[in-house]
Amino acid sequence: MNNEYKPKEVKEPLFDRIFKPQVITLENGHSTIRKRSRLPLILILLVAVLIWALQMTEFRFSTITRNFPKLLDIFLKLFQPDTSFFPKVIKPLVDTIKMSILGTVIGCALALPVAVLSSSNIVHNKAVISFCRFILALIRTLPTLVIALVCALIFSLGTFAGTLAIAIFTFGIVAKMLYESIETIDMGPFEAMEALGANKFQAFWSACVPQILPVYLSHCLYCFEMNVRASAILGYVGAGGLGITINERIGWRDYNGLGTVLLTLFVVVLMIEFTSEYLRKKLS
């Protein structure tokens, strides 16, 4: 439509200005331009970073080979789980699952409106969008364990702090995944709804929500999977659940007991993952 459209001037990258592209001319006078490969530069940088990192962390392969028998010992014990310990695993395991369910539900419920407010195709106010996205980005920078620790310090030790930490973490992740999905939905039906006299809310609710809902539920399920795994360690900082038991077993060097805990966790995570994967396949 716009006949005064001007193509944007493409600025040449710095790299191409330092290392001029090679011009290959064929015998018949036709020529083509070959840009210099960036691979050598990237490789040199990578090797330099690796050498620097090795020095920084004082990582030696020899320590691993020297102490490998110790690890083997731990592993052998892990694979001979102490079945008599099993009854003591049930209660914290159930706590962990309860924490994850409640935390996921709360976090996902809060994420939906914020995700909608952060989607540039639905909200046209730039200030609102960048504010919401900034908050989400800040939340995502904080590790779950740190959030859990702070919660435990404020709200006393126990499952409440864990649930809150999971809810905050879920909120950050689901809202981000959701607004990225919302921005890819088909806005045609929304336009059609406006054309037939619906207001913004009605148009959004009947044209966009049916598209968003399956994606949203799928993100929630995915996050629940992650949360079960993540909440298993929250107890380490006193936020309830399996983590306390794990920490205790390692502290006492009871690796057979630890084996029982991990095996139970493994089975539960496996079951949840299968169910969730099945449900997510049905959703799409």
């Binding site: 990582f59 320590t63 690890l71 795994r229 298993a232 380490y236 794990i246 390692i250 496996l270």
Partner: peptide, 27 residues
């Protein structure tokens, strides 16, 4: 799947016995 299920913190606690505390254990 087993590697994925064991939380990273638990892995770290086990490796500490091998490497001792420090950045190498993290690596």
């Amino acid at each position: 799947l087993m590697i994925r299920t064991i939380p990273s913190l638990v892995w770290a606690l086990m490796w500490i016995r091998v490497t001792g505390p420090g950045a190498a254990c993290g690596v």
